[in-house]
Amino acid sequence: MDFDTNIRLAVYQHFASTGQAPSLAQVAAQLTSSEQDVRLGYARLRANRVLLLEPDGETIRMAPPFSGVPTPHTVEAGRQTYFANCAWDALGIPAALHQPAVVYSSCGQSGAPLNLQVRPGGPEPSPWLFHCQVPAARWWVDLVFT
């Protein structure tokens, strides 16, 4: 595998096992590489829309569907709690983990709580809806806003 693929896998495996973003030092240590090389890899992965970084170039804000910061969309799978970037990613986490999960979120207008059981084949039947304000062509213009 190429270096950037190894970085991506290290980042995603860390999210999957801990629910949190790895530090630059943790990824560099796992890959027995320099932090500078990993930082350059992060920049390439950002350019390819794999990661979203904070302005420091080393703090991972998003490795979709995982969020590096707390959000109103949480997912419990196994014994781990994860933060999702948005409603889409809240279902994306059980899809990525291939594990049963419970999605906790709320209605964007009323604030009513959502507690959705997700099995490997998909979520339980639910009348809830998903709404996206930003057209697909502009999602990555401001991914945090999207």
Partner: peptide, 22 residues
């Protein structure tokens, strides 16, 4: 309002985007 998506549709999108992400 933008086009609405059911939970079943959203799951299909989630799988298409993320099932191989790891």
């Amino acid at each position: 309002p933008r086009p609405l998506v059911t939970m079943a549709q959203l799951w299909e999108l989630a799988v298409a985007w993320y099932a191989t992400r790891l």
